[in-house]
């Protein structure tokens, strides 16, 4: 692991305590799994800390793990301009209670990504000012990137104009 990132992860662990559930390292990508209650705090600290600030939120996206518990995962990528390193946060939520506090107060650029995650997975972001569907029509009822949604869609879910 990159020493800079190692330090950041260490400090995150210290500050968040048990809320940091797990740290995964794969091919030098560091994923810090945190509880959803601290995601805003973690994002704020990542943006504002002095040693290695991460001013750019690159991406927010959902994953349907399709497990019985903690079905949905949401990943956040942050990039540091000073150190040129990345850190990834991951939040896991239950299907029945798929709610995560929004980080748009910290990173305004995450706004559309959170909308996209809502559109595709139905994970809601509490406190988001403008949580609408971004790709699908607003009357669409399903969440297409969930694993139980078929690739070719459900017939009749999206209307077509009549041929005449």
């Amino acid at each position: 692991m990159n020493p800079v990132i190692e330090k950041v992860v260490h400090t995150l662990r210290e500050r968040m305590g048990d809320a940091v559930e797990e740290v995964r390292v794969f091919r030098d990508d560091v994923i810090v799994v945190v509880d959803r209650s601290v995601v805003v705090e973690a994002a704020t600290w990542l943006r504002d800390n002095d040693e290695c600030p991460f001013p750019l939120c690159e991406d927010v996206f959902g994953i349907d793990a399709y497990t019985r518990t903690k079905r949905f995962e949401v990943n956040y990528h942050f990039f540091s301009l000073a150190q040129h390193v990345r850190i990834h946060l991951k939040v896991r939520v239950e299907e029945e209670d798929a709610q995560i506090p929004t980080i748009t107060g910290v990173y305004p650029g995450a706004g559309w990504y959170e909308r996209e995650t809502y559109d595709m997975f139905g994970v809601t972001f509490t406190g988001h000012r403008d949580l609408r569907r971004v790709y699908m029509p607003e009357e669409f009822e399903y969440y297409p990137l969930r694993k139980d949604y078929p690739l070719m869609g459900i017939p009749g879910a999206l209307p077509l104009p009549k041929r005449g």
Binding site: M120, V134, Y135, M136, P137, L145, Y149, L151
Partner: peptide, 13 residues
């Protein structure tokens, strides 16, 4: 947006 949403991410899976 969404007028050209082609579902790449679902296709990739």
């Amino acid at each position: 947006l969404g007028y050209l949403h082609r579902g790449y991410e679902k296709i990739a899976e």
